[in-house]
Design a protein around this nucleic acid. Structure first.
Lengths: 300, 300
DNA sequence: GCCGACTCTCCCCCCGGGGGAGGGCGCAGA
DNA sequence: TCTGCGCCCTCCCCCGGGGGGAGAGTCGGC
């Protein structure tokens, strides 16, 4: 009599398919207790059943296989608990955004809404402490949090006060390609000492078509759509990074419904009055690579 | 001047990546308003922005692309609303099972629990109205609902009363391969007229190792694990379909925590007393193909 | 020793995405 | 009118996390 359960037996006990058991073996998640070196047959023990069930639940919660492997190979229970808790936070966030997507969907399907006000505004050159980087779209939120924390620390260390609400500049390739340059900043009156990733820059002047997004950011793309539609119908084409100003944001209140975000879409100058052809507007694209991005300001 | 937005413009407005817009075009979800026949360039209009946003939200909610296509191509608003509502129900169910998975995970990671009682029981031959089919694992729940509804209707039409709690037989390939034969039944004293998929059958006698699962079925695999472990450690190997009896189930109360499900795992006869070798137990497999499955009973 | 059930590896498929190569197109400035 | 650059095209390969199935080897009861 063979000691150990065949893969089929183990599959029946754990409700993991044979295919999956083999895959988890390859991935190093669940080594069989014994592998016959000549036949390659996998043999499991009942002691492995709980592990299999934990793996099953992690997968059910959408945890990537690699991360499961990392957790299972973490010996320290505390470090392990941290990893698990971190993933559970992600899951919770996911649940929240699903709920939010349902709400947005309902609103989209019952198309009603107040007319959106768009106005043209000139952004004066603005001095600010800033962190910029090339980021991937689905990491931009985490990156934002981290960067803002660092900016806060810099201001606190230098004893400076913000001279206005913080904001960000986002390259449009972030949306078209899912990857692009982003910059978050806090406006200041006087330069701060550079440190870490923080630089003091001057946001160049720009003509922006601005509208205000109210509420959490889950459906900010809808406001972008309205703004973009409005602009497109005025035959004005855009150029340069889009500008978001977090007038009321997560750093002001946890009540997401109170948030106010200004979205500033760079437009060609000759607006009010003579709608310009899209071709003419494209001229604005020609300010050169990086046009619309801040230049390092006087430092010190 | 070209009328229409290039794919890049449209991407910036909708926050759908260029790749995705092309994919959705291929899939027929979002035809560009115009495609230049010579260059293949796609041109969109602002009128398509809302559609793009709806698609975006559906995808966010995990709706398969094909189903989005089906919804978008459904002209009747009511039929369309039905499809949407159906998916939202699925999403809701998903949220629920995610929460449940978190709870189960916590229990698994803090391994505590009352000892499970397993006892050996002989299932006598049982006459029942039943529906059987080969099903895929992730459709087995929907299939169960449908089949039970049909069984209920059959009993009601024939004026019969169940002679006990309903249950199901599930081929173990459902777990090992993700596909297998399943049969749900309601026990009856007298045969019912065959109709639709309903047949009157006799569940053959069987020796079952039985335990009771308490609560919702999301973590029923854990109980299977305990039962399977217990059996494996008694060196008794199983054969034939597993038997579930829904002593208290969804048809009795919506309070899932009150559910009681008996899980009966077929075992070789010579249990109590002499633990048999796994090899000997396999003999039970040899009752022939389909062993343990019911035979059509006397009809009429 | 036979034979059927089980297991092995290997390859292709699915979905919903992304990266990147190589080449054509649009458009404004020279 | 040409040139140059950015945009867009198609095509192919990659990823993760699964499934289907072929062909060959193994296990173990009879």
């Amino acid at each position: 009599m063979r000691t150990g359960l065949t893969i089929g037996d183990f599959s029946r006990i754990t409700h993991l398919s044979v295919k999956m058991l083999r895959r988890y073996h390859e991935a190093g998640l669940l080594e069989p207790a014994e592998v016959d070196p000549s036949s390659g047959y996998r043999y499991y023990t009942t002691a492995q059943v709980p592990t299999a069930q934990v793996i099953h639940r992690f997968r059910e919660l959408g945890m990537p296989v690699r991360e499961i492997g990392r957790i299972l190979s973490t010996p320290d229970p505390e470090a392990r608990a941290l990893l698990v808790a971190e993933h559970l936070r992600r899951v919770e966030h996911q649940l929240e955004s699903t709920r939010s997507a349902v709400a947005t969907l309902r609103r989209l399907l019952v198309p009603t809404g107040p007319p959106v006000e768009v106005d043209l505004r000139t952004r004066p050159p603005t001095r600010a402490v800033a962190i910029g980087a090339t980021v991937v779209r689905d990491q931009v939120l985490a990156w934002y949090d981290e960067a803002m924390t660092e900016l806060d620390a810099t201001l606190a260390a230098a004893g400076l006060e913000p001279s206005g609400p913080h904001g960000g500049l986002y390259d449009d390739t972030l949306f078209t390609d899912g990857r692009g340059h982003a910059l978050v900043y806090i406006p200041v009156h006087v330069p701060a000492p550079a440190g870490g990733r923080v630089r003091t820059v001057t946001l160049p002047a720009a003509e922006l078509a601005v509208t205000v997004h109210r509420g959490p950011h889950d459906d900010i793309d809808v406001t972008y759509g309205v703004l973009g539609t409005y602009i497109a119908e005025q035959a004005i084409t855009v150029s340069g990074p889009v500008h978001e100003i977090y007038v009321v944001g997560p750093r002001d209140t946890p009540d997401t419904s109170a948030w106010r975000t200004e979205i500033g879409w760079p437009v060609f100058r000759t607006w009010a009055g003579q709608p310009s052809a899209s071709g003419a507007a494209r001229e604005a694209d020609r300010v050169g690579p990086g046009g619309g991005w801040p230049r390092p300001g006087a430092h010190g």
